[in-house]
Design a protein around this nucleic acid. Structure first.
Length: 435
RNA sequence: CGGGGUGUAGCUCAGUAUGGUUAGAGUAUCUGGUUUGGGACCAGAGGGCCGAAGGUUCGAGUCCUUUCACCCCGACCA
């Protein structure tokens, strides 16, 4: 993309109500803008990031033999009445009426719809297991939406549902999804923890949450510094009385308290703040039994499906990446999530030598499949640097006055270090950095 | 859902206690000039139904009523 043609309305000032870094920088960087309470528009940069995350999620799920579908966003109220969740979810479900006065719900989640989809279409144990997912808009009418993309009312979520002929097979899939989720978050370049969790309104037995570690997270986790153990503190309160005394304390107080308890591996336990970006549940027959979704087993017996469900907050991940990766100047995208990985900054576009080198590099990198931005805007050097830092390109090639000596600079956003490189070898250098 | 707050230029905000010329600033935008390695400088220009609807008044951004929207604290919540 060329900066001179791009719709990237960056701003010096953040909206006064934004408190989180991700909210401030995503708005200032021209990624998103607010449409209403808990409602956000994605502008070109935000849309690219969202699609990149979505593509990685899809690729890993497809590798694990999950299949993507797309369920209707507007669903008849009857679907929710049959499962009893019309009542249970209450006002969080946004209800609307059509011209015939029929009542509908904007899907907050899709267990019912997915069970209905599979019911009577898969009727034999021979056709199991089956794992279907979608990456689609959800709407939850939160009492108080806040924190930008972190807790919106309308959001993009991947929700997956698996169907099995036995509990053992369901647990196998549950474990497979845990591994798949780890691959996804690792590929995204995130520092995360898998923790034992409370299963909340969805219900079911085994449940694990995936948290991106960030100071601004809304959840408090207890994590072991030595092994992989981690738990959401909500769960611990319920199961371990001795830590219950800490319940009333604030997070800051918690930080100062030493937990005498050691992890079973012997490592020390620490409190961390986390952003929940994934949640997997073992459902069993919680939905299949009441909705009468049955199959025949090898003995010809009719049984409800054993089910599990798997969620990833795709639009929340956009914010989570920034909560974990930013500094006072703006966003620091990971290589996998950056809207453009390389920014070629032509310091003075009136300088034909600078401009033609910029164009040449732009073409070469694009031909190599690199997502690259050519900053051919008329702005001055300082403005362009501030802009690049705010947007957060992982690398910026600075083509400026040093070109007279045949040199350009490679600026790394995360470290803010600048490396002087011969203009002739900068392409190879970038390819090396990106490999 | 309880409690509190805010709506004035694209954005960030003054102005409202005590009603009174033509509603301001910064920033952004446009023109021209000077600049050209860290959001530059000078000069000029455009941009407003003061959230909306009623009311009081000779006169309302300012006072009253209603309403809508957004935000903050809490409760709730994948």
């Amino acid at each position: 993309m060329r900066r001179s043609r791009a719709f990237i309305p960056t701003a010096k000032e953040a909206p006064s109500d934004a408190t989180l870094p991700s909210h401030k920088f995503l708005v200032r960087g021209g990624f998103i803008n607010q449409q209403g309470a808990g409602l956000y528009n994605f502008m070109p940069l935000g849309k690219i990031v969202l699609e990149k995350i979505r593509a990685i999620v899809k690729e890993e799920l497809d590798n694990a033999l999950c299949q993507e579908v797309q369920l209707s966003f507007v669903t008849p109220i009857g679907l929710w009445e049959r499962s009893g969740r019309s009542e249970a979810m209450g006002k969080e479900m946004l209800r609307i009426r059509d011209r015939h006065e029929n009542e509908f719900v904007l899907s907050p989640t899709n267990e019912e719809a997915m069970v209905e989809l599979v019911k009577n279409r898969v009727t034999s144990y021979k056709d199991l297991p089956l794992n279907l997912y979608q990456i689609n808009t959800k709407f939850r009418d939160e009492a108080r939406p806040r924190y930008g993309l972190m807790r919106g009312r309308e959001f993009l979520m991947k929700d997956g549902y698996s169907f099995h002929s036995s509990v053992e097979d369901m647990v196998r899939e549950f474990n497979l999804m845990e591994e798949t989720y780890k691959k996804i978050f690792t590929r995204l370049g995130l520092d995360f923890r898998v923790v034992a969790a409370d299963s909340g309104a969805i219900g079911g037995e085994g449940s694990k949450e995936f948290h991106v570690l960030a100071n601004s997270g809304e959840d408090t986790l207890v994590v072991c510094e030595a092994c992989e153990y981690g738990a959401n503190i909500e769960t611990i309160y319920e199961s371990e009385e001795e830590i219950d005394a800490l319940k009333a304390k604030s997070y800051d107080e918690l930080q100062e308290l030493k937990i005498d308890k050691k992890c079973s591996c012997g490592g020390a336990l620490h409190f961390k703040k986390g952003i929940e970006v994934g949640h997997i549940f073992q459902l069993g027959t919680k939905y299949s039994a009441p909705l009468e979704a049955y199959f025949n087993d090898e003995n010809g017996r009719t049984k409800p499906f054993e089910m599990a469900t798997f969620g990833i907050g795709v639009s929340r991940l956009v914010a989570a990446v920034i909560e974990q990766n930013h500094d006072e100047d703006g966003c620091i995208w990971t290589k996998a999530t950056a809207p453009y990985v390389v920014n070629i900054m032509v310091s003075n576009i009136k300088d034909t030598a600078q401009m033609s080198l910029g164009e040449e590099l732009y073409k070469r990198l694009e031909n190599s499949g690199i997502d690259v931005m050519l900053d051919d805007s008329k702005e001055r050097f300082g403005f362009k640097m501030k802009d690049a830092e705010l947007i957060g390109f992982p690398y910026t090639i600075i083509i400026g006055k040093e070109l007279e000596n045949g040199m350009v600079q490679v600026y790394e956003r995360r470290t803010k270090e600048t490396l002087s490189v011969d203009a002739k070898t900068v392409y190879a250098k970038i390819m090396e950095l990106l490999s």
